[in-house]
Design a binder for these strands. Structure first.
Length: 610
DNA sequence: TAAATTGTTGGATCA
DNA sequence: GTGATCCAACAATTT
């Protein structure tokens, strides 16, 4: 009886601690084990076996594995379950190839507290739309597994011939093109330019160096977690709504979300390390959903909602659980499938300008601009900061479709999880999960509440750094004398080449916009359509919003199909820098990381340099 | 069953 | 500075 020859495929579990799938691979007692990654990363595997390391193969898994199975005489493929929409599609292709090659596939769940598919089953097949539902379903699934110890050793890898044709991935459309300084040369050879299965460098990918200060990898994750756990009071009494979105260096929250995203830190390990502190702390500890473990419940809730709904979870059209609101800049859709295409209609030039100014951090509202610039530079902002800017773009200011905002977050957030991103945008836009649309974040008061001095604004909006705190959230109110004293003039619309020493005027009157939005939401709630409604899909929803001259929510919209289709096409926004998102997520051959995500690569490289 | 309560994180005003 | 109250009011869950 020959021993198994196993490929261990790293995916969203870039760690050795608490990896049920890696444990399953080792339980096979393999003769050889290849730790492979079909993208880019690195790990401290060599510490366990000097002959081994993370082997990065530069080809899409859909085409690569069927060739590897044969060339390496593989008997088993082991990996961690991925319930993302793209992940499921990709894995189905790989599993089919394995079946055809007679390779046994072993899959283990480890990305969430509970297996999301099991949660859905216990929630009667429905998406978990509240924390209570998630908690009840989770209890019925069973106890959250305790973490598994990291392996003490690893088998040798086998021979790794790559003497087969490389299938060049399809790199068009290249959504990262606007961010590249050079050409993407990462795909020249399967084993890399030196044949050593090395991680791609930034230069190979054609990207400039990263701007974020965040670094990653498993050892840094465990170190950061250890430090948090040490502070028992912080850990046990943590209440998310009481942490400040204006605090930076250090941030008020744990900053562990990027590690969770890459799987460098196990969510179960996080949970139990915290839970043990909470149990020990006893009376006075906080509890879910506000507590630290409660934050992990939200993550599981969104993952299980996505597991139940699939692709429609990421859009309004066809989604029965999302309220229809006639937002500006709605997504274009494929007429037959109803799926969004990644482009959108520009129904309002004004809204398009607002969206651009929001994205670029030049709205003229310093609190919003500081957060958007921090997001772009660091790839991370505090959860309540995300609330502020998301509310502002959608139901509390611009009345722009939440799908536009979600695309920007997808591009810039280091900790971006498709499920959490879509779910939180639905929450903030009051289209699902949350409905109190009259609770609206003010771009002035909310910042003031947390940061009277305006330190976050001064850091990320340096034009205003010397402005008196009296005007720091409302610079347009500063008398000319005060502006002069601070070396800034409030003028312009923030677009194009901004004159040095200026900061833009606010792009609208916020109280006025707030009222427009709230009445728009009120109307949309009264109409009561959901994303799967036929009238939403065929455009006759317009008949239910009857007064075209009443408010902007009554503006004429174009959606695909119907008599407006031609005009809709004419007005469609050109596919440009903003059009990141759905398509990229579906195509692993397109490098996953735009510039802000470059740190993803650096963080893993840091592993060995610790 | 209908009514009351609760829901991770609002703002303005006033005591 | 902090807490209570109102604002105008949704939806799920509990009682």
């Amino acid at each position: 009886m020959t021993k198994p020859r196993v490929i261990y495929w790293f995916r969203t579990d870039l760690r050795l601690h608490d990896s049920p799938a890696l444990q399953a691979a080792l339980d096979l007692d393999p003769a050889v084990l290849w730790p492979v990654f079909t993208f880019h990363s690195s790990m401290s595997i060599t510490e366990l076996n000097p002959k081994s390391k993370l082997f990065v193969l530069r080809e899409g898994p859909q085409t690569l594995f069927k060739k590897l199975f044969k060339a390496w005489r593989v008997t088993h493929l082991v990996f961690e379950k991925d319930t993302d929409v793209y992940g499921r599609e990709r894995d189905a292709v790989v599993v089919k190839a394995a079946e055809e090659a007679g390779v046994e596939v072993v899959v283990r769940s480890g990305r969430t507290l509970w297996d999301s598919d099991e949660v859905v089953k216990k929630n009667n097949g429905k998406p978990t739309m509240s924390i209570a539902q998630l908690q009840h379903a989770g209890e019925r699934v069973g106890d959250i597994p305790r973490p598994i110890a990291a392996p003490k050793s690893l088998p040798d890898p086998g021979q790794m011939p790559v003497d087969f044709e490389q299938d060049e991935p399809d790199t068009q459309p290249d959504f990262n093109e606007p961010s590249r300084e050079g050409k993407d040369t990462a795909y020249k050879d399967i084993a890399g330019p030196n044949g050593d299965f090395a991680t791609e460098t930034m230069e190979e990918l054609g990207f400039p160096s990263a701007t974020t200060s965040i670094r990653g990898g498993e050892s840094l994750a465990l170190k950061a977690l250890g430090k948090i756990i040490e502070d028992k009071k912080y850990t046990a009494t943590f209440e998310k709504p009481k942490t400040s979105p204006a605090q930076f260096e250090p941030q008020a929250t744990t900053l562990l979300s990027p590690f969770l995203h890459f799987g460098a830190l196990s969510v179960r390990e996080f949970f139990w390390r915290v839970q043990d502190v909470v149990t020990e702390y006893g009376k006075g500890a906080s509890s879910p959903p506000m507590s630290l473990t409660g934050q992990l419940y939200f993550r599981d809730m969104y993952f299980a909602a996505q597991a139940a709904l699939g692709a429609p979870f990421h859009q309004t059209a066809t989604n029965p659980y999302i309220r229809f609101v006639p937002w500006h800049l709605p997504s274009k859709r494929d007429i037959t499938s109803g799926m969004v295409t990644g482009e959108y209609h520009v129904d309002s030039e004004e809204a398009e300008i607002w969206f651009k100014r929001w994205r670029n951090g030049v709205t003229g509202f310093p609190w919003i601009d500081a957060l958007m610039r921090q997001l772009k530079q660091e790839g991370w902002i505090h959860h309540l900061g995300r609330h502020s800017v998301a509310c502002f773009l959608t139901r509390g200011g611009c009345y722009v479709d939440w799908e536009r905002g979600a695309e920007v977050f997808e591009e810039w957030l280091l900790d971006h999880e498709p499920a959490c991103n879509a779910g939180n945008w639905q929450w903030l836009s009051c289209t699902a999960f949350f409905a109190q649309y009259y609770r609206c974040y003010s771009p002035i008061s909310f910042g003031q509440k947390w940061d009277k001095e305006g330190a976050l604004v001064r850091k990320y909006v340096p034009e205003l750094k010397d402005l008196d705190k009296k005007y720091i959230y409302e610079p347009w109110k500063a008398p000319i004398a005060d502006q002069k004293k601070a070396g800034v003039r409030v003028q312009g619309d923030g677009l194009g080449d901004r004159e040095k020493g200026t900061y833009p005027k606010p792009m609208f009157d916020f109280p006025e916009r707030r009222n427009v939005c709230i009445s728009g939401l009120k109307k949309a709630y009264a109409v009561g359509l959901h994303g799967n409604d036929e009238r939403v899909l065929n455009g006759t929803w317009r008949d239910l919003f009857p007064s075209p001259d009443e408010a902007e929510v009554m503006n004429e919209y174009d959606s695909d199909g119907g008599e407006h289709a031609d005009r809709a096409d004419q007005r469609t926004h050109d596919k440009g820098a903003q059009q990141v998102g759905k398509k990229r997520a579906r195509n692993e051959s397109v490098p996953e990381a735009p510039p802000k995500k470059q740190s993803k690569r650096q963080q893993t490289l840091n592993f060995r340099n610790k």
